[in-house]
Amino acid sequence: MTRVDFYILPEAGLDARHNFACRLVEKMYRLSQDVCVLTPNAQQCSDFGQRLWAYNPTSFIPHRCRTDEQSESHEQTDKVWVTHGDELLQHHNVLVNLSCEQPVHFSRFERLLEVVVPDKDVVQASRQRYRFYQERGYPIANHDMRR
């Protein structure tokens, strides 16, 4: 069963959310986990891919961005994917959800990481997803990064 982790951040905004997601991706990559990052649209997919390239100048996180059905095929050696749209998800160990919707195929993953910032819309959508996972018996862990 998929394990769900909610990371509650002290800072609001897309930059804070994406920077923390980069940190999570880097950690999972260093642990040799296959990671998929789900963004809400093609523009954020591209933007997050660019952010990953520049995130840490002393490390390198190779990744591919997949923004539509015509994108390059999935390679077994690709450890990190950035995508949007549930129909584009491949199986990986970890899914980082940056969309405000519950991923349709999240149960394909061993872990689902939800990044929550104190923005009204993000918090409201995160609470709905939390209830959804909880009602279905998924194990949930909360990580309060505000402390």
Rank of each mutant, 00 (worst) to 15 (best):
T58L: 12
R108G: 09
Q33D: 05
H105T: 11
D86L: 07
Q44M: 14
P139G: 09
S32H: 15
F132P: 06
D68E: 13
R30G: 13
F106R: 09
E101I: 06
G13R: 03
E11L: 08
V35F: 04
Y55P: 12
D144K: 07
V37S: 01
S107M: 08
P57A: 12
C36G: 02
P103K: 07
C45V: 10
E114I: 06
C36R: 03
S32F: 10
E114H: 09
A141T: 09
M1R: 14
R146E: 04
Q90F: 06
V35H: 14
V116N: 01
R131S: 13
R146M: 02
R23P: 02
H18I: 03
F106T: 03
E75V: 02
T77F: 11
G13C: 13
Q90H: 12
L14S: 14
S32T: 10
F132R: 14
E114K: 10
F109E: 09
S107W: 04
A16N: 13
S59T: 15
E101C: 06
R17L: 00
D144S: 01
V116T: 03
S107L: 05
L31F: 04
E101Y: 12
A54P: 00
K27T: 10
F6G: 09
F48T: 05
V82T: 14
E110G: 11
L14P: 04
P139H: 12
S73C: 07
V115F: 04
D5T: 08
C45M: 12
A12N: 07
E75Q: 13
Q50D: 13
R3G: 02
C65V: 14
Q102W: 01
L95H: 04
E75S: 15
S99H: 10
L89T: 05
Q70D: 00
G13V: 06
H74D: 09
N97C: 03
I8W: 04
T83M: 10
G137E: 07
N97G: 04
G85E: 07
D15W: 01
E26M: 06
R64C: 11
E101R: 15
V37Q: 05
I140E: 00
C22T: 05
C100H: 12
M1C: 06
R129K: 14
R136W: 10
A42G: 10
A12R: 09
R146A: 04
R30Q: 14
D5S: 04
C36N: 04
